[in-house]
Amino acid sequence: MVKYTVKRIGMGLFSIFIVATLTFFLMNMVPGGPFVAEKSMSKAAQQALAEKYGLDKPILERYGTYLTDLLHGDMGPSLKQRGREVSDIIFSKFPVSAKLAGIAVLVALCVGIPLGCLAAYNRGKWADNLIIVFATCGIAVPSFISSVLLLYTFGMNLKLLPVVGLNEAAAYVMPVTALALYPAAYITRLMRSSLLDVMGQDYMRTARAKGVSNFKILFKHALRNAVLPVVTYVGPMLAGLMTGSFVVEKIFTVPGLGREFVSAITNRDYTMIMGTTIILATLVIAANVIVDVLYKIIDPRIKLK
């Protein structure tokens, strides 16, 4: 277990290094720069800024400096939000996105797992068909459409829910719904097919032949086996959502990391792009390790290598 953890951390660090390197060079290959778009600025001023942030140096040297700083935990200053450190921005915005994502994933699990079970238990009946329709819609409808529909219906027309910011509990309802819709639908489908598969297994017949009640057959014998694919899916999905959904954050004016990330890209805020990418990579890798360990806990057949 210890050996496994060490190995995974090592591999994780290496992956982050690769991601950082690729991002760094690709980002610099794209024409343009952080200060080019600012029309009001004179050539000389641009030059001065570039010098200040070291952008006039050769790319390899800049890469070396960035990595050295990164190793010291310094992600550098933001090129556009002048006077603010990238790490400060990330640490002020990340919790907002993470909280929203956490709630959304919880909702998706609480909706998806029971719905999937319900559908599997009523296979071929109307309840199953209804749930499949919901799941298909949830997967097919992009978040910008569901967000706008929600906003329009509950925010504008019915005026039931606040439309801006996250200042009260009710304000979470719409963004969480918009974020949770796709994963909930996906989990429903995963859960349904996986439970159907498990229900056909021989050990379920053994459980019935032992006289186990239907309730215990579902909760003890079936769910633990059936939930494995959901675990695999939820880890990386949570990581993705935690770094913020640009669309949902934009539509509901949520001050999260997703918006920062996208505006950093359009603005060529190099240090911000690097910072957010590294955070995303770290989260995805961490999520995968956690999923592996969870997997091992749920299914003893899994060997951690």
Binding site: Q201, D202, Y203, R205, T206, A207, A209, K210, H221, R224, N225, I298, D299, P300, R301
Partner: peptide, 15 residues
């Protein structure tokens, strides 16, 4: 009354 099935490899719950 109890029963033993054909395939012992799959008749026990793996978890």
């Amino acid at each position: 009354v109890s029963i033993i099935f054909q395939d012992p490899m799959t008749s026990l719950n793996p978890v």
